[in-house]
Design a protein around this nucleic acid. Structure first.
Length: 259
DNA sequence: AAGGAGGTCAACCGCTGGATG
DNA sequence: CCATCCAGCGGTTGACCTCCT
């Protein structure tokens, strides 16, 4: 039974628990109080209802979701940056659809947003490539082609935007990719970008930073026809925030067809 | 200008596991 | 223990927007 009263109790507990300055997130998890309510808490609740009324005709669940995914002060909105795309690909390759876990590593991004990104971009491209997103073929493509390429683009963009980059800018209205200087590209220290994912082509230092100059040709391409890389690079400047261009898809389709 | 197609993203649904009585 | 509750999670839906014809 979900009475109006319980709905609003839920709502206020939800809002109160989340707090305005201690948002939900990795190391920002607030210690949630459990157990019986104290008289003081009851009093706060009663005062709240006296002032604001019983509130919205919403379930606590709905309010919680709205808060976490939208209203929280530090929620970042807008385009997923190249660096974030890279992290998502890497973390997903390790953790699968553990969206909340992945979101913990992207400050300000919600699991919902990452999930939407994956479904609307990555799955779509897998479909275009006629690959099962869980197939080794597709995973290898991500690992040995897409991710090194993303890093190349991050590096290229950083040299272009030298001195103007930030780790995570507020993307509310940004129109160009927010990138990070490769030397400063930080990866969650608990799990630095694994070299096995990157193949031999690139590496991350033990501190979790991408070492400048460490990016080389993706090994899968070294073994194959490198002229294809030059060809695709010649006709693409990779200037956008996204690698999911038609040209790149064609290139990958060709690559996969050759396997 | 209209409307259809496709993409995006906020919100909802249903399940699960941990907490609580 | 056991039943119940509920927060949190991943999957799915649907409203809205943009682009194309």
């Amino acid at each position: 039974m979900d009475t109006g009263y319980t709905r609003n109790v839920h709502m206020m507990r939800t809002l109160s628990d989340c707090g305005s300055s201690a948002p939900y997130g990795s190391d920002e998890h607030m210690v949630m109080k459990k157990g019986p309510w104290t008289e003081e808490e009851d009093s706060v609740l009663i005062n709240y209802v006296n002032v604001h009324g019983e509130g919205l005709k919403r379930t606590g669940k709905s309010c919680r979701l709205r808060w976490l995914n939208y209203l929280r002060p530090n929620v970042r909105r807008g385009n997923i940056t190249l660096h974030e795309q890279l992290l998502i690909l890497d973390l997903h390759s390790r953790w699968g659809n553990r969206w909340s876990k992945i979101a913990e590593e992207l400050p300000g991004r919600t699991d919902n947003e990452i999930k939407n990104y994956w479904r609307s971009r990555v799955l779509k491209q897998a479909k275009q490539l006629k690959c099962d997103v869980n197939s080794k073929q597709f995973r290898d493509t991500m690992r040995f082609v897409w991710m090194p390429r993303l890093m190349e683009q991050i590096q290229a963009s950083s040299s272009h935007d030298h001195g103007q980059t930030t780790m995570f800018s507020n993307t509310q209205a940004h129109t160009k990719p927010c990138v990070t200087t490769p030397t400063m590209l930080s990866v969650p220290s608990s799990h630095s970008m694994s070299s096995n994912l990157m193949g031999d082509g690139c590496s991350f230092s033990s501190s979790g930073s991408l070492e400048k100059g460490s990016i080389s040709t993706p090994c899968i391409l070294q073994q194959k026809d490198y002229s294809k890389v030059e060809a695709v690079e010649a006709c693409n400047d990779f200037g956008g925030a996204d690698l999911w261009t038609d040209e790149n898809i064609c290139f990958l389709q060709q690559l996969l067809a050759d396997d």
